[in-house]
Design a binder for these strands. Structure first.
Lengths: 160, 160
DNA sequence: TATTGTTATACTCTATAACTATA
DNA sequence: TATAGTTATAGAGTATAACAATA
């Protein structure tokens, strides 16, 4: 599908997995912020593993869904929806264009702007990616009942 | 307390906050991974804001709690408990030593290793920081009842 | 031989700021 | 004057890999 941007290889010296004798995390255990962060790292890892064959990362995937969902989206709109700076959105879109997922079409109403659009191939691949994302979601919620998953989703949206 | 390492200033061009006409996040809305990520960003922001006067970040705070909790902790143990590489732990400890929170004492049992220890001033400051962290927790859970907060914590730990 | 802390180096992500071409 | 996209640059975070001292 195109030039594969990097995701990172895991090698030798890296992260070990054993800890101290009887290590204690003290006050951290009961902190929502801390547990949220640890969970996010676990989830991120599983996402990368599950979607490795598409070189997909969470921000890339979010950008694809947003562009697929919103016709005539400007790059600045995408940046705002993702909560990142425009300069970052440029790089993200560059990558996704290189990968063949989307393209920059001239905006119908503003000669300064582009209208972001999924390519035909990108739309097709997104379908496969969505299946993988569902598998990913299944992995990370494997220890939760459907009701618990729904409850969790509802509670998380009220955090922050 | 010491040389203040950077956290970052927010200036002009940065992130805008408006979005497209009637923007849709499509499939993202229902994804636990996505909502977890968004929540984590909100929480991270509030943490930085609430603990700005101590130049504290979540990883720095986690390191402080872990060192305060575990006597004779080696740098390698800290790295493992934080889930980062040893080289990263060196930089983190460098920062916290510069800030006057902790010190590297010779290990009693291994001439290669250090025993990380909170300084007296560090211990005292950590108490104030803990109070601020509790305020931070209160902010981010303001829309949850105590029971809901407990439920959320319990569910999050089962994710991933 | 393996491990501890360190350093050198590199890569990702994201930011600020300045520029250009439009509006 | 303000906005859209871009580019240059920089900083934080974290990784791999190699090294000296010690186990």
């Amino acid at each position: 599908m195109a030039k594969p941007p990097k995701t990172r290889a895991v090698e030798t010296d890296a992260i070990a997995s054993e800890a101290a004798a009887q290590p204690s995390y003290g006050a951290l255990q009961g902190l929502l912020g801390y547990q949220l962060r640890r969970a996010q790292l676990r989830v991120y890892d599983d996402f990368l593993r599950t979607l490795a064959q598409w070189q997909m990362t969470p921000p890339r995937y979010a950008a694809l869904e947003i562009v697929a969902e919103n016709a005539q989206l400007k790059l600045t709109d995408l940046a705002n929806m993702l909560g990142i700076a425009r300069s970052g959105a440029v790089l993200l879109v560059d990558t996704l264009v290189e990968m063949g997922y989307m393209e920059r079409l001239p905006s119908l109403t503003d000669k300064r702007a582009f209208a972001l659009k999924m390519t035909t191939a990108g739309q097709a691949t997104l379908k496969a990616i969505r299946t993988a994302v569902q598998a990913h979601e299944a992995h990370i919620t494997a220890q939760l009942s459907p009701a618990e998953r729904a409850k969790l989703l509802q509670l998380i949206e009220r955090v922050g």
